[in-house]
Design a binder for these strands. Structure first.
Lengths: 252, 252
DNA sequence: GGTGCTAGGTTGTATATACAATAAGAGCGA
DNA sequence: TCGCTCTTATTGTATATACAACCTAGCACC
């Protein structure tokens, strides 16, 4: 548990990024302001221009900076492209609306993975994988069917938890933040059992969010979050930062 | 139609990318296969290793390739899905997969807005609003029905454009980047007409992305992007930035 | 047979250098 | 004042080089 925020990244170009992120966070480089030129950063940080350039180019691609050839590099308001899917803890979502959140744990068990599932967790067929199936309700109306596979290596005590008190998501986040996350959003129809759990009609289209996470040690979790289409949708709203004058060359 | 595809990228590292995309599209580099090493590409394409390396690193960051130090570089299967909130230009998405993109403009006209729509654009009922309805196809299969309302104040020449040559998205982006964007993702069933345009069955669940943009001058566009659920999904994959792990919300 | 070491191939990072492309401003002249 | 050119600052691309990190396969050794 790194209560110390400033663990130094290993690579130099990452330290350049970190340096700028820190200064942006501390307010020394506010939104829209111009940051030091590549040459200045080169001297300040003792890195070569190519290394500084790489760091800035990547931060530009990530939407954190905006660069204009011949002019300079500017701070762009952090683009919460992940706001839509980064957190995705259903209970927080519901509580934020001031509604009642309840979980019903339908299954919580270990089982032997078939070949496909085992392969996704980098195991041999038959390896033990934890499994949970939970219905989340908002004001007593089901809004999410959460099916989750968890690597025992990642969360050995998964089966001992009481997930009516704490969501799986929060529990797993507290073990270790993933180093990589993948989300895929589908529109599907639920199978008969899922329809029963969610108390919906057969014709109801559903949003299916497939979420997979990895840590440095390998695959950690795989989940399928099924939402009734008429009760739930995903949204985000944000302001991309813009340079004060002149229009930006569309895309960096 | 998409003469865009044949256009030679100007920069060398982009040509390296294009070379690989072409070979991936033509089947010479199937999903999962190993691509030539940096040294081999260096000799084949006459670029330096650093340039090849940059191209591969970027394609890896884009999710097109998978690289393992000490082993090699492999083609990662390109699923038909768009990066969730980053690009959202369907043609770029399709072309990036090396597929054929075609647009069919069904309607492109002005009409008098009813009260609700007018209110969204901060106008009085009866105000003139531009409207377009376009089907986008990937390899001759419809993948998106794009319905769009545009403020005449924002894009006065909207109706004069040929949107088979340039997507609405790209045209509007070139006018001015929005200062604010909102996305909402729903799961729905299409109405009869949309089913016909998308060539899907009545039971097929669809992803509906509602997108609204604003500029400093006020509301600019409002769109509804409808995707057949079995042909298209939205996805994102990323590595959370380092400082984010275990980070406490600015208490110091 | 197993174990450990080594060599070779591949990707990852860092640097110095060179030149190109772009934008803003200084200076100058009509 | 207007318009033009030149200079300067800054970012963008390309290359050669060096070394580090990592994986695999093969081989010697016990």
């Amino acid at each position: 548990m790194n209560h110390l925020a400033a663990e130094k990244p290993q690579h130099l170009y990452e330290r350049v990024k970190q340096y700028l992120l820190d200064r942006m966070a501390s307010g020394q480089l506010p939104d829209g302001s111009r940051i030091p030129s590549e040459y200045e950063l080169m001297e300040t940080l003792g890195a070569s221009r190519m290394t500084v350039h790489r760091a800035l180019r990547e931060m530009s691609a990530e939407g954190l900076l905006h660069r204009v050839q011949g002019v300079g590099t500017f701070v762009r308001k952090a683009e919460p492209r992940s706001a839509l899917l980064e957190i995705f803890d259903i209970s927080e979502d519901i509580l934020r609306r001031g509604h009642l959140h309840q979980s019903r744990v339908l299954r919580l068990e270990a089982f032997a993975a078939d070949r496909d599932l085992a392969a996704q967790f980098s195991r041999r067929a038959g390896a033990k994988i934890f499994y949970s199936l939970i219905v989340h309700a908002e004001n007593n109306l089901p809004v999410q069917l959460e099916e989750r596979f968890v690597s025992p290596r990642f969360a050995p005590d998964y089966l001992k938890q009481d997930f009516t008190l704490q969501t799986t998501n929060r529990y797993l986040q507290n073990i270790a933040a993933p180093s990589e996350v993948e989300h895929i959003v589908h529109a599907v129809t639920a199978d008969a059992q899922a329809q029963a759990y969610l108390e919906i009609s057969p014709a109801e289209p559903c949003l299916l969010v497939e979420r997979r996470t990895w840590t440095e040690a390998g695959p950690a979790t795989r989940s399928r979050l099924l939402h009734p289409g008429h009760r739930y949708s995903l949204g985000s709203r944000y302001q991309p930062a813009q340079p004060r004058r002149g229009q930006m060359p569309s895309r960096d």
